[in-house]
Write a protein that binds this DNA or RNA. Structure first.
Lengths: 334, 334
DNA sequence: ATGAAAGCGCTAACAA
DNA sequence: TTGTTAGCGCTTTCAT
């Protein structure tokens, strides 16, 4: 493997100057006479010199890199966040490094360690749950961290989240207003973070309307299409099936629709369905999915801005929190 | 920004050994007495020491990182490739670094330079077109490169691609068999790579069936949903509108369906539509989209395997080529 | 079984 | 305006 990377010494020798001069024509941090500047630049172009970011980081102790840790790079909701982060970072010359963890807590933990080892300048963390303990090593190492999707402000950590309680309230109230009773909720395996906030918003809104949440109507599965299928299957096994189902995200909702179709049930005729996120597929399914829009790309961008701010501002400001409110997107499934 | 990273010297001092010993308990590349090994390990855990990958790469000249350059991290087809690449890389301890270029040739070029500067060990490149010139600097630097989606074998570069000519033939023949004539094709802006191979397969198959391709029926737009909408709009403006339309990918096909719906036309009743890729949304649209399955995740994995092989094998073997064949997925849009 | 020291390719302080 | 040199935090000879 003849890795023939040109080094700064090669350029310096070829141009007949010191490496300091080469360094300075690149950085412009010191005046260089026009003639040598031109000569050095020529040699650089000729030889195809690309300064090693590794060596540079070694000295500057900056990688100009921000890690984004997400559960699934295949999930459009998270790639939207990644995209938003890039939107915010690129203009400042920072690079977003995306790590996909499959939502496995152990891999999430490792990913943080790995990013510390890589000396990323900052970390955006969006797990399925709020594993604050996972990012603790990063905080200890002095790396700015933004937690995405966590409602509770944490010491030393900035936070970006959507108003999940409000979002679920929107969905629930919409169903109640449409005259639905026996409203079920399909959520994920654990009892923390946005998913539980959504369940909370659902329960609260039910109560406000004089309805009581029935435990059997809240089912826990996986956060994917299969999970949605399984969740709906369990709901249909109930003695009395629900009239409407709120699903913790659109992918799950689409899975739930699969089961409905297989069972020969109509949506929303027999069972109405609402999701969260408004991913692109939401408007494509049949019937088009009524859902609660979560501003993923904006959240990613906000995450980037917070991180950039921490990076440029060395004063230890108190943790910031940015909340995005949700909007109901009325389509035909509910 | 008090970046308090623990260094190897800190650990050595605390454990009362030399840095060489610390290095060796971590790497195991030299015997260390059980007692000191334990003591050092304790200090490492205690202090939360995470060896700097930067410093390590500096001396080993390896980053254990592979760059994947794609047009759009938001496009499920490319994230599937990314996922496949990860599948292949992770077991070997390599890390995939995903770069999104928006399909902008200039950004694609910069991305390659950027990755060279970062000293990635290898590069997977999947542009909209086969900009071999873009990856040329990487080849010159001795960095293994795999071109994804390019049909033509290139000197010094491995290649993974799907049989796009065959895929398009599959789609075209299917339409012809169903009795459709006046078959149009919506493709992207340029005349290279998979898109043009698909057009070629379409044209050839038409010819084989005694039909001639009419230039007005091949329209060029953007590779996204809006492009599909615009392309179909132009097709509908024709004196005689086509009876069937093949779209260069599913996202474009979905855009084309949007226009049909807006125009009050039925699919496949008035105009049949076929796409490529079989992204998740394809089965969700109404009517479900007939499409040609491209094995994106497998292609990504194959890319990873080729790269890993080049990395472990220093002999200069001739360029490898891996082709994946396509499959027609019959649904209802055609 | 362990340590001392060279050096990876840069930036930046210090000299000239 | 330019050059010399000391590190940045590691791995890896070469000694002991």
């Amino acid at each position: 493997m003849p890795s023939k990377h040109v080094r700064i010494t090669d350029v310096a020798a070829q141009a007949g100057v010191s490496i300091a001069t080469v360094s300075h024509v690149l950085s412009g941090r010191r005046p260089v006479s026009e003639s040598t500047r031109r000569r050095v630049q020529e040699v650089i172009d000729e030889m195809g010199y690309r300064p090693s970011a590794i060596a540079r980081s070694m000295v500057t102790r900056r990688t100009h890199t921000v890690a984004l840790i997400i559960p699934d790079i295949t999930n459009p909701f998270y790639t939207a966040i990644a995209r938003g982060l890039q939107d915010a970072l690129t203009p400042s010359g920072y690079f977003a490094l995306v790590v996909s963890t499959d939502g496995d807590p152990e891999i999430e933990r490792q990913a943080v360690e790995h990013m510390i080892a890589r000396r990323v300048d900052a970390i955006g963390f969006s797990g399925y749950y709020k594993h604050l303990r996972d990012v603790e090593p990063a905080v200890a190492a002095g790396i700015p961290v933004v937690l995405l999707g966590s409602r509770t402000p944490r010491p030393g950590v900035d936070t970006v989240f959507s108003d999940d309680v409000g979002a679920a309230a929107l969905a629930t109230q919409h169903l109640i207003d449409q005259g639905y009773d026996r409203i079920a909720f399909i959520t994920g395996p654990a009892g923390q973070g946005p998913p539980s906030d959504r369940v909370a918003g659902y329960t609260e809104t039910l109560a406000e309307n004089g309805l009581t949440a029935q435990p059997e109507l809240v089912v826990r599965t996986q956060f994917n299409r299969d999970g949605g299928r399984a969740g709906m299957r369990r709901l249909l096994e109930l003695a009395t099936r629900p009239r409407a189902v709120i699903c913790t995200n659109d992918v799950v909702a689409i899975g739930a629709m699969d089961t409905l179709r297989e069972a020969g049930l109509r949506c929303p005729g027999d069972v109405a369905i609402i999701g969260f996120d408004d991913i692109e597929a939401a408007s494509l399914v049949s019937p088009p999915l009524t859902t609660v829009l979560i501003r993923a790309r904006e959240e990613g961008a906000a995450c980037g801005r917070l991180l950039l701010h921490r990076l440029s501002d060395d004063q230890q400001q108190p943790p910031q929190t940015v909340m995005f409110s949700a909007t109901l997107v009325r389509r035909e499934s509910a």
